[in-house]
Design a protein around this nucleic acid. Structure first.
Lengths: 189, 189
DNA sequence: CGATGGCTTGAAATCTCTCAAAGAAAGTGG
DNA sequence: CCACTTTCTTTGAGAGATTTCAAGCCATCG
């Protein structure tokens, strides 16, 4: 993925949609299906985005030829899995405002890691309905929870851009621990 | 993992515990941390279990020497990730009885795949409190939801054993689609 | 300018949780 | 094998969180 904003999702038979992860430039979300026959989820763009395609066969051949490179890609999929795990915690164990705050913390750090933040603000072109699909909340409740975060002077969201006014308190409100993002990976194997 | 019943979990600062996945004999849950420096979750036994240990270094060396084997292990971690994704859907988008039903469907198929079911019943040594931690529900509500599933003649749970009385209706109640388990993998690469 | 999609608000209905207590089952030590 | 302790299951009832329904507002786009 080169540019824009993507997300993975699954439809639920009852008509709902569950968003499973957000992706920013530098991510390779499709790696999750490299060794699986069928894709069990969908991948959508939140805004106009630019992506590159690498045929699975070519990538598998490349990995066979260069095992250390394979490890790097493998590691990438393991980090995605760690993020999925944290999302289980998010929708399973946090109350509404914390769930939203947690997602904002995560997206902020992911964007910061690729230099796409602007000080304490970043592009966040996600509608409240989509936040609801990501957090397992109704749009109405998302709206009220965001108002709460705004009233607490933690963040503001307007015109597809989110600004973080108090990072420390936002982290605390989200019970956010960045360990699961495994970001300090420069030089890691 | 050779014998017993394991689960992955994460503690939440507020004192709660979120269970992230259940594991049965044949699984290799620790593969998730093969290429990560720090383990961001815990692994616990639900009952007395037998496990084997393979040093990460040895496994990485083995994978470098045999890329097709590495693919198999990699695939295993991707399936775990697919299960994590389905769990996000479970806690995020299903109502209480469906969440529990969904977990029962999953465990049943995983056990069946390794020949550990007995007809339509299987060992399920998980307390209602643990089911609550896995589904993001309180113990009390788990209890009432199980009673509902029982009253509907879908399942029964007693003495650490679960019996499925109506698989089709249970699947429907859980909106369970086994695709994400990627079980028909015999011979798959 | 009308139409669309997203945001906001109010109020009632529903789900789920917490608290509190009692009954049932399982494990421990004598 | 029994008494005791602990853990697990079950029940009731009130409190709290979240959803649904319904409507109005606002910005954007053709």
């Amino acid at each position: 993925m080169l540019e824009g904003f993507l997300f993975l999702y699954k439809m639920v038979p009852d008509g709902g949609r569950q968003i499973l992860s957000f992706h920013v430039p530098g991510d390779i979300p499709d790696l999750q299906s490299l060794h699986l026959r069928v894709m069990d989820h969908g991948l959508a763009t939140a805004i106009q985005s630019t992506v590159g395609f690498i045929p699975h066969d070519a990538l598998r051949t490349l990995c066979h030829a260069h095992p250390p490179l394979a490890d790097k890609f493998w590691r990438d999929t393991l980090i995605d899995a760690a993020i999925f795990r944290e999302w289980i915690v998010n929708v399973g164990s946090r109350e509404a405002p914390s769930r939203i705050a947690h997602i904002l913390c995560e997206v902020f750090l992911k964007l910061q890691a690729v230099g796409l933040t602007n000080g304490n603000s970043f592009e966040f072109p996600i509608t409240q309905g989509e936040i609801g699909d990501a957090t397992g909340l109704s749009t109405v409740h998302v709206n009220r929870s965001i108002q709460k975060l705004r009233a607490d002077k933690l963040i503001s969201i307007e015109k597809g851009r989110c600004t973080i006014w108090d990072w420390e308190r936002l982290k605390r409100a989200a019970t956010f621990d960045p360990t699961y993002l495994h970001l300090k990976s420069v030089g890691d194997e």
